[in-house]
Design a binder for these strands. Structure first.
Length: 447
RNA sequence: UCCUCGGUAGCUCAAUUGGCAGAGCGACCGGCUGUUAACCGGUUGGUUCCUGGUUCGAGUCCAGGCCGAGGAGCCA
C-alpha cells in the first residue's frame, strides 16, 4: 500500500502515490468523471476518478457511492487550483478505492441548509461537517495553548472538586444532587476557593475543568455545562494580574493562528483582526467605562438602544454595555475597579475607596464581551470574616477559607477564563453552542 | 421568570380574503470529462405540533396547551 498520509499534509506529496483513509463527504457525478470530497479527520481532499482510467465496475461503484461511506483511497497527488478542500489546491487522481462500508440508509445531514434544532439533534453527525470540524479543532488547539502557557510559566495544575458542599460564591443557581447521608451536594461552579488554598502550597496554580450553572439563561453566550480555566497566584496584585492575563490571552490567540490557519480561513475568519492581539491591552476603570457609555448613549438616535444602555453607578454591566464598550477597541479591553456591591464577597477593596473592588474583567473585541473575570482577593482575615457576615454566608462552611488568611496571608489574585466564549470569539462565530462537542443548554441533554 | 418570533414532506421553506397540500433539496432512475451545496429530465414523498371551538368548509380564525429560537435578567 502506498504511503498513508493525512489530508492536511497533502502538499508535501505532490507527484507521489499515496493512500487516504476516510469518509465520503460529498460526491459529484459528472458523466465520465466523479469527484469525491474525502475527509479523513485531518482535512478535506478532493479525489477524482476518470472513467477511462479505472476498472468499469469500480467506476460504477464510485458513481453511486453514498455520502459518508468509509473508504481507503489510493492515487496520485497533483496540484490543481480548482480543487476544493481544507487545505485546498491539491487533489488525488484515483487509482484504487476499497469501500470499507457503503452506507445503506439515507444520511440525515445533507449539504443543504438545516435548522438549529435538527442539527443539534444530530450533533453526533453534525461534528463531521467542515465548519464544526474546524471549530472543534480550534477548541482543542486553544486548550492546548492554555496548558502550554501555564506550564511554561510555572503554574501547577491542581484539580479541584466537582462535587462541592455549598455555593462557592453564593450567587448563581447550582445543580443539586443527593450525596449519600451528607445531604445535598452541588456541581462545581468554580474551583477558585480551592485554588486559593493551593497557592499557599504551590505558589502559582490552576484548575481546568467543567463548570455547571443551573441559571435559566437562553442566549447565544450561555451553556449550563462549560469549561473554565482558573489560574491563581500568590504574591500578585491587580496590576500584575492584568499583565499575566494579557500575556496569556495573546499566547492563546497567536498559537491558534500558527496551528489552525486553515481552520480559521475555512470559517471565513479575518486573520488580521487576530494578528493584532498582542500586549499591551487597553485598561479603563469602571468609572471611565460609565463615561464612555454615557457618551455612546448621547450620540445614538435609537431609543431602544438608549434604554438598553441605561446604567447607574453601582450596577454591573449587562450584555449590551459590554458589547458597546468592546466596539471602541480593536483589542481585548480590561475594565477594572467595579463597585464592591456588584461583585463577589472575597474581592480586595480599592485602597482609600471601599465602595470599589480590585476586580477586573477582560472584554473581547468585536462585541464578544466578557471572557475573563478576576480580582485581587481579600488577604486580611478580619475583613474577610466581616464580608462573609455581610453576605449572610455560613461562617462555619468557610472556616478553612478564613484559615488561609491566618497562616501566612499574602496579596494574591486570580481569574477565570471561559473556554467556550474564547473559542466563539477566536472563531468569529455567532453562537457558543458550536464550540463544545456536545452542548448542554437549558432544554437539551441529548445526544 | 419576562418580552418577541416560530412549528406544513426526511431537510429548508411557500400556500393571496377561510375554498383541491405546493416548490427546492435529499433518495431512486437516466444524461453530462472540472464539479465546488454542480447542473438538466423523470420518479418518490403529508397525523399541516396537540386538544377543543367557530364555519357549508380551517394550514389559515378563536381558546388552552406542548415544543423550539432570539433577547432581557444572571453569569464565564
Amino acid at each position: 500500500m502506498p504511503t498513508l498520509i493525512q489530508a492536511r499534509d497533502i502538499a508535501d506529496y505532490e507527484g507521489q502515490e499515496i493512500t487516504l483513509q476516510g469518509w465520503v463527504y460529498n460526491r459529484t457525478h459528472k458523466g465520465k468523471l466523479v469527484f469525491l470530497l474525502i475527509r479523513d479527520g485531518y482535512g478535506f481532499v478532493q479525489c477524482v476518478a476518470f472513467q477511462g482510467e479505472l476498472d468499469a465496475e469500480l467506476f460504477e461503484t464510485l458513481a453511486h457511492i453514498p455520502q459518508e461511506s468509509s473508504v481507503i483511497v489510493t492515487g496520485m497527488v497533483r496540484a490543481d487550483s480548482r480543487a476544493p478542500g481544507i487545505p485546498g489546491g491539491y487533489e488525488v487522481g484515483i487509482m484504487g478505492v476499497e469501500v470499507v462500508q457503503a452506507v445503506g440508509d439515507e444520511y440525515p445531514i445533507s449539504l443543504k441548509e438545516h435548522g438549529v434544532d435538527f442539527l443539534l439533534d444530530h450533533r453526533h453527525l453534525w461534528i463531521r461537517v467542515p465548519s464544526q470540524w474546524a471549530i472543534l479543532r480550534i477548541r482543542t488547539t486553544i486548550i492546548s495553548a492554555i496548558r502550554e502557557w501555564l506550564e511554561q510559566n510555572g503554574f501547577t495544575l491542581l484539580d479541584t472538586p466537582i462535587l462541592t458542599p455549598a455555593a462557592c460564591e453564593g450567587t448563581t443557581t447550582l445543580f443539586e444532587t443527593e450525596y449519600f447521608d451528607e445531604g445535598p451536594a452541588y456541581l462545581a461552579q468554580s474551583g477558585q476557593l480551592y485554588n486559593e488554598a493551593n497557592i499557599f502550597a504551590f505558589g502559582k496554580v490552576y484548575c481546568f475543568g467543567p463548570t455547571f450553572r443551573a441559571e435559566k439563561s437562553k442566549t447565544r453566550r450561555h451553556l449550563t455545562e462549560f469549561w473554565m480555566v482558573e489560574p491563581e497566584m500568590a504574591f500578585c496584585d491587580l496590576e500584575q494580574l492584568m499583565e499575566v492575563e494579557e500575556q496569556f490571552i495573546s499566547h492563546i490567540v497567536q498559537r491558534t493562528l500558527r496551528d489552525c490557519r486553515n481552520e480559521l480561513l475555512s470559517l471565513g475568519r479575518d486573520l488580521s483582526v487576530l494578528e493584532r492581539i498582542v500586549p499591551p491591552f487597553p485598561r479603563i476603570s469602571y468609572d471611565e467605562a460609565l463615561e464612555k457609555l454615557a457618551q455612546i448613549r448621547a450620540e445614538t438616535d435609537d431609543a431602544e438602544a438608549r434604554k438598553l444602555l441605561e446604567i447607574e453607578w453601582g450596577d454591573d454591566f449587562g450584555s449590551p454595555h459590554e458589547t458597546a464598550l468592546t466596539k471602541l477597541f480593536d483589542k481585548p479591553v480590561f475594565v477594572y475597579g467595579y463597585p464592591t456591591g456588584a461583585k463577589a464577597f472575597y474581592m480586595e477593596p480599592w485602597p482609600g475607596r471601599p465602595d470599589v473592588s480590585k476586580s477586573v474583567d477582560l472584554l473581547a473585541p468585536e462585541g464578544y464581551g466578557e471572557i475573563t473575570g478576576g480580582s485581587e482577593r481579600i488577604s486580611d482575615p478580619d475583613l474577610l470574616l466581616k464580608r462573609i457576615h455581610e453576605h449572610n454566608l455560613p461562617e462555619e462552611a468557610f472556616r478553612w477559607y478564613i484559615d488561609l488568611r491566618r497562616y501566612g496571608s499574602v496579596p494574591h489574585s486570580g481569574f477565570g477564563l471561559g473556554v467556550e466564549r474564547t473559542v466563539t470569539w477566536i472563531c468569529g462565530i455567532e453562537h457558543i453552542r458550536e464550540t463544545i462537542p456536545y452542548p448542554r443548554t437549558i432544554n437539551r441533554v441529548y445526544p
